[in-house]
Write a protein that binds this DNA or RNA. Structure first.
Length: 258
DNA sequence: ATGGCTGAGCTACTCAGA
């Protein structure tokens, strides 16, 4: 089974790129973030024509997440955390893989910049609640996949210039510790597990040739509960979509489990 | 080193992203 996570930075502005990509990559389940639209304006038909059903948790202009799937998804839930600002950032659903019922948690973590503002506090509180709920969830199901845009640079190796981000909401130690807290609950960062010293990124901003200079960061992740680690076939960051015209600033991360 | 791009909403410009 192929599960892919991609922050598309507007599903409507990106629909041509997304359809081209899924026809080549052929995911069973595509987790997207930053759809930037309300449910009623989601391009359900475009995905349906390509064999995918969409489960959408949208919001006007900002945020929004969705699960696009060829396989059956059960128990879709849009209330994973109580969000004080009522932002659409988490959608979950269950898939069946052999004898395992796996819960997929698709997330778009708040950016949190600039620091020393309410936005940063919101990120910290959001992460705290999220971790607490993951902890509870683990007690009921030991087969969890957390995927999406974490807006966290886990380690120095995960960004082109760490110095520039150590006082940023994506790279501050306090935030990176939240990522470690999650791992310590019994998860693995699958990309880093399989690529010990490799420097690859999932995001390059639109400014002054960041993509051309490879000034990127690795902030989109697949965290698998350790119970699922033996089922991993491969993990891959696919840079091709970032090189296209009118690209998202993020590129997809692709997981194969069997 | 920042925000020089980009998108949504809307139709001039702000908010947000990372």
């Amino acid at each position: 089974m192929k599960i892919i996570s991609w922050n598309v930075n507007s599903v409507r502005a990106r629909i041509t790129n997304i359809l081209e990509y899924i026809n080549q990559a052929k995911p069973d389940v595509l987790l997207i973030q930053e759809i930037k639209t309300e449910d009623k304006n989601f391009p359900y038909e475009d995905f349906e024509k390509n064999g995918y059903y969409s489960y959408v948790y949208g919001q006007k202009s900002y945020n929004g997440v969705a699960i696009i799937s060829k396989v059956e998804i059960s128990n879709i839930n849009k209330d994973f955390i109580k969000d004080d600002l009522k932002q659409s950032r988490v959608i979950t659903g269950e898939i069946q893989l052999k004898n395992k019922k796996i819960e997929i948690i698709n997330i778009y973590v708040p950016n949190g910049n600039p620091i020393e503002t309410k936005k940063y506090d919101y990120k910290k509180i959001w992460l705290k609640k999220f971790i607490l709920n993951i902890k509870k969830k683990l007690n009921k199901n030991s087969n969890l996949i957390i995927a999406g845009d974490f807006n966290i640079i886990p380690e120095e190796i995960d960004v082109h210039d760490f110095k520039r981000y150590e006082n940023d909401a994506l790279g501050k130690l306090e935030i990176r510790k939240k990522f470690r807290e999650l791992l310590n609950l019994g998860f693995s960062d699958v990309y880093r597990l399989k690529n010990k010293d490799k420097r690859e990124y999932t995001f390059w901003d639109y400014f002054a040739g960041s993509w051309q200079k490879n000034n990127g960061m690795r902030i989109d992740h697949f965290l698998l509960s350790n119970n699922l680690l033996d089922d991993i076939s491969s993990i891959n960051i696919n840079k091709k979509p970032r090189s296209k015209t009118k690209p998202s600033d993020h590129t997809p991360i692709e997981l194969e489990i069997n």
